[in-house]
């Protein structure tokens, strides 16, 4: 990978004027590719690896999510950004779970935000590409290999419904160490005490949105992987959770055993990867969240989370 070469960015939109605008906005910065449909984009991806894909969601023939999911298989290193005018919840959840996207950008966008996001994505793509190639060269170990049970990190379930942690424990079986927390305070205490690899949380705990907690955790402990398990799913908070919290999976209640097991084991593998290769962290970098408005207990917690940083080194 030549650092001097311009990064390759692919824009996909059925509206040609959007593509024109993108050309104008990003000319001189990257090597730009354009496609006016999902099919064209996939054709292009087969011949031309790219670093970042920016796709519209609503397109005839193939939606943005479908495109990004297939692109992830074709070109797993490419960072995926979804540009959307209006998305229903199912589309967003699909893009999180199947597309593992980096950001949602809503239309209309602010140019500086979009350029900053694309820039971050480019940087992350380049770093992680370097990491994966070197890692592959070094050991050639399978990143999907099972986690050795001895070093099995714990799973923290944050939910104010006391029935949820035992339920998860029952679903995951005895191999996993599952900790329950009914409040954010309790969650942070557990994080201070135990080596946690995966956090399963509702969108709101005791009426506080968890997005700032998860965002702060991700900022300071990038190897932590979050799963949202909720019945109060709404599109806005899901978008915030991906942009500001880089959540790994979004599952809706009621809990389906197999779905839950698959999500947790893949989250554990992801945690393993992130712990091993700090270079990957940039791929899951979060937007700096706006400070929680006058939410004293939460901001107090965030301070405590920051202090956790030192502990991280010990566990990894």
């Amino acid at each position: 990978m030549q650092d001097t070469a311009k990064a390759r960015v692919l824009f996909v939109d059925d509206e040609p004027r959007i593509l024109t605008t993108m050309r104008m906005l990003f000319r001189n910065r990257y090597e730009l590719h354009f496609a006016d449909s999902g099919q064209r984009a996939l054709e292009l991806l087969k011949t031309q690896p790219v670093d970042v894909i920016v796709s519209d969601q609503r397109m005839p023939g193939m939606t943005g999510i479908e495109l990004l999911r297939t692109a992830r298989e074709l070109n797993p290193d490419a960072m995926r950004i979804l540009l959307t005018g209006y998305s229903d919840l199912n589309a967003i959840i699909g893009s999180i779970n199947e597309g593992e996207i980096f950001r949602f950008v809503s239309k209309p966008w602010a140019n500086e935000d979009l350029t900053a996001t694309v820039e971050r994505a480019v940087k992350a793509a380049r770093v992680s590409a370097a990491v994966t190639t070197s890692a592959a060269a070094e050991s050639g170990d399978d990143p999907e290999a099972a986690v050795p049970p001895a070093s099995m990190p714990g799973i923290l379930v944050v939910d104010d419904d006391p029935q949820v942690p035992p339920r998860i424990r029952a679903v995951l079986g005895a191999d996993c160490r599952v900790f329950g927390a009914a409040s954010m305070d309790e969650a942070v205490s557990t994080l201070e005490r135990e080596p946690i690899g995966v956090v399963i949380s509702d969108t709101r705990v005791e009426d506080h949105p968890v997005v700032s907690l998860i965002g702060t955790l991700k900022q300071h402990r990038p190897e932590l992987v979050s799963i949202i398990l909720t019945e109060r799913a709404d599109a806005g908070s899901a978008i915030d959770l991906i942009n500001q919290g880089q959540i790994y999976r979004f599952i809706t209640k009621p809990i389906h055993d197999s779905q839950c097991r698959i999500a947790v084991s893949s989250a554990l593998r992801q945690h393993q990867r992130l712990a091993r290769d700090t270079g990957l962290h940039q791929r899951y970098e979060v937007e700096s969240a706006p400070p929680p408005p006058g939410d004293a207990p939460v901001s107090g917690l965030l301070g405590r989370i920051r202090s956790l940083r030192g502990l991280v080194k010990r566990w990894v």
């Binding site: 959007i18 605008t21 609503r58 239309k107 209309p108 966008w109 979009l114």
Partner: peptide, 14 residues
């Protein structure tokens, strides 16, 4: 909203 946001997006960006 989608119909409006698309032209609005590029118009504003432009």
């Amino acid at each position: 909203a989608h119909e409006i946001n698309t032209p609005l997006g590029y118009a504003r960006s432009n």
